[in-house]
Computed example of a mutant assay.
Amino acid sequence: MSGIEIKLSQEIKKILLFGFVGGFGFIVDSAVLYLFKSVLGLYGARGVSFVAAVFATWLLNRSITFKEHRYNYWYQEFAYYFLYMILGGFINIGVYMFLVTISITVNQYPIIGVAIGSIAGMIVNYLSSRFLIFKKK
């Protein structure tokens, strides 16, 4: 295998791991949303569920996907991760809110909005994780 092929296969592995972790984050996000939606409403519950999903994905991405690029201080790493995830989160939650507002179906089944929003934010989140947060030191 050439150097380019090895780097490409490593990058594909990272993307797949990031997708797996994102899938787990989707489950956390959806579960927390459904747990709190009757108390906080669809928008308030989504804010809480987003924070829970960011925390869960940070734990897994630092332990699995980007383990070779962890920070010495976990709290510093989490702060950077959370701040960068906000950009993807704005996209994610913006799509969710838009769909909940315009679609009766998504309003009745908000998990659809969570799924579509998650996909929309995933690309931004991967790029910021890979090239800004867990970059080579």
Rank of each mutant, 00 (worst) to 15 (best):
M1H: 03
M1G: 06
I4A: 08
I4Q: 05
I4D: 11
E5M: 09
I6F: 13
K7Y: 03
K7W: 02
L8M: 09
Q10Y: 02
Q10C: 10
E11Y: 05
I12T: 14
I12F: 02
I12D: 00
K13A: 08
K14I: 09
L16F: 07
V21D: 01
G22T: 13
G23Y: 08
F24R: 08
F24W: 08
F26W: 12
F26A: 07
F26L: 15
I27S: 11
I27R: 05
V28C: 10
V28R: 02
S30W: 12
A31W: 03
V32N: 06
L33D: 13
L33F: 10
L33A: 07
L33Y: 09
Y34K: 06
F36W: 12
S38E: 15
V39Q: 11
G41S: 06
G41E: 15
G41H: 05
G41M: 12
L42C: 11
G44E: 03
A45K: 05
A45E: 01
A45Q: 08
R46F: 14
R46E: 15
G47D: 13
V48H: 00
V48D: 10
V48I: 14
S49K: 10
S49C: 13
F50H: 06
F50Y: 13
F50V: 01
V51T: 13
A52Y: 07
A52L: 05
V54H: 04
V54C: 11
V54W: 09
V54P: 02
V54I: 06
A56Y: 01
N61K: 02
S63M: 09
I64N: 00
I64M: 00
T65K: 03
H69I: 00
R70C: 07
R70M: 05
R70D: 02
Y71V: 00
Y71Q: 10
N72K: 08
Y73C: 12
Y75F: 08
Y75R: 08
Q76C: 10
Q76G: 05
E77T: 00
A79W: 15
Y80G: 05
F82D: 11
L83T: 10
I86C: 14
L87R: 04
L87P: 14
G89R: 05
G89M: 10
F90V: 11
F90H: 12
F90S: 14
F90R: 09
I91A: 12
I93H: 07
G94A: 15
G94F: 07
Y96F: 15
M97L: 11
L99M: 15
L99Q: 04
L99E: 04
V100Y: 06
S103P: 02
T105G: 01
V106S: 04
V106D: 08
Q108R: 09
Q108N: 07
P110E: 11
I111L: 13
I112C: 09
G113N: 04
V114I: 13
V114L: 14
V114T: 02
A115G: 09
A115D: 03
I116D: 05
G117N: 04
G117Y: 01
S118M: 14
I119D: 00
G121Y: 02
I123N: 00
N125R: 03
Y126S: 03
L127K: 06
S129I: 00
S129V: 00
S129R: 03
F131D: 08
F131T: 08
I133E: 11
K135S: 03
K137I: 06
